[in-house]
Simulated assay, not measured.
Amino acid sequence: MPVTMDEVRNFISQLPDATQVAQVQEAAAQRLGAIDKAALAGVVAGRRARINESLRPALLRGLTGTVQERNRTGTRAGFLLDEQSTRILRRDPRNGQPGKPKYRIPEDMTRFRLPGNGVPLSCLDVIEDD
Rank of each mutant, 00 (worst) to 15 (best):
P98S: 05
I51T: 02
R87L: 11
Q14H: 09
D125T: 07
E107K: 14
D92S: 11
R91H: 12
R72A: 14
D129Q: 14
R87F: 05
G65K: 04
Q30N: 15
L114M: 13
R113G: 14
D92K: 02
V67L: 08
R104Y: 09
Q20L: 15
G62M: 10
T73F: 15
P2N: 06
V8T: 07
P16N: 09
N10Y: 11
G99P: 04
G78E: 07
E128Y: 00
G74T: 04
L63I: 00
L32Y: 02
R94M: 12
P106A: 10
L80R: 06
E83L: 01
D130W: 11
I35M: 13
D17P: 11
L124V: 04
R50Q: 01
I51P: 03
P101T: 02
Q25H: 10
I51S: 04
S85Y: 08
E7A: 14
V119K: 03
K102Y: 07
D82F: 01
T75G: 13
R48V: 01
E53A: 15
A28R: 09
A58E: 15
M109A: 07
L80Q: 06
R76L: 06
G33D: 08
M109G: 09
T19I: 07
N10F: 09
D125Y: 03
L114G: 03
L121C: 09
A41Y: 03
